Simulated scan of single mutants.
Amino acid sequence: MIELQRATEAELPEIVALTNWAYRGTGPQSSWSMESFIEGERINEAMLREDLTAKPQAHLLVWRGEDGERLGHVWLEPTADGAWYLGMLTVRPDRQDQKLGRTLLAASEYFARGQGAERVRMTVVGQRETLIAWYQRRGYALTGETEPFPYGDDRFGRPLRDDLCFVVLERGL
């Protein structure tokens, strides 16, 4: 099992850069799971710091390779009734053909289970069918719940469609 480590203050700029590259990057090394119907930044440093301050129980975890290279990161947060929220699962787009995403997901679930999680929940933009199918192949199921997309809040990017929403997926541990 890979080792996840708590992100340090000094790593936040790199976490923001990697997140934006993976979620909104373009070009030949862009991610297969890129949010092509939202433009602009996925996150910025001020938002990330705000989230970390507002949610001190959350864990922003970093995965580094043996050579120290940052391979990915994830946000894990205890919520209610034994559920943990998994967000911002991010791996280097230029290394995605090496099964890094599934490795990081498994390590994230292992970490949450070690903290007492009984299940993991996440939200995904409902129009990201390929990504939803990827999570379903790893044991996540759609709950039937949806959450509204934050239209009018450009901190999360500018949507290029007017029909976006989040779907909730869950997996028991």
Rank of each mutant, 00 (worst) to 15 (best):
Q127E: 10
R24A: 06
T143F: 07
E118T: 09
T90L: 03
D94F: 09
W134S: 10
R24V: 05
M34S: 15
W32N: 14
A83D: 11
T19A: 15
R64T: 07
G25P: 08
Q98P: 08
Q29M: 10
E147Y: 14
C165G: 08
T90V: 13
A46P: 06
V125L: 14
E11R: 01
R158W: 08
T123I: 11
Q136R: 13
R6K: 15
M34E: 15
P159D: 02
M1P: 05
L4N: 04
A17V: 04
G65K: 09
T123F: 07
R155V: 08
P159L: 07
T19G: 15
Y110D: 15
M122E: 08
H73I: 07
V167S: 03
G101S: 05
A80I: 13
T26Y: 05
R42W: 04
M1R: 12
H59S: 15
I132V: 14
V124R: 00
L61D: 03
Y151P: 14
G114R: 01
E66G: 15
Y110K: 14
L105E: 00
T123R: 09
A106K: 01
G139L: 04
L48G: 00
A117L: 02
L104W: 00
G139Y: 02
Q96Y: 04
T19I: 12
H73V: 05
Y140W: 09
E14I: 01
E35Q: 15
E147T: 12
L160K: 03
R158P: 11
Q57M: 08
E69M: 13
E118G: 15
L164Y: 03
G25K: 00
I38A: 01
D162A: 11
E11Q: 08
W134A: 07
L52P: 13
E118P: 05
Q5K: 13
A22D: 08
V125K: 03
E66Q: 12
A141P: 06
D81M: 11
L173P: 04
F37N: 13
E69I: 11
L169K: 00
E3F: 03
R49C: 09
R102P: 07
P159E: 02
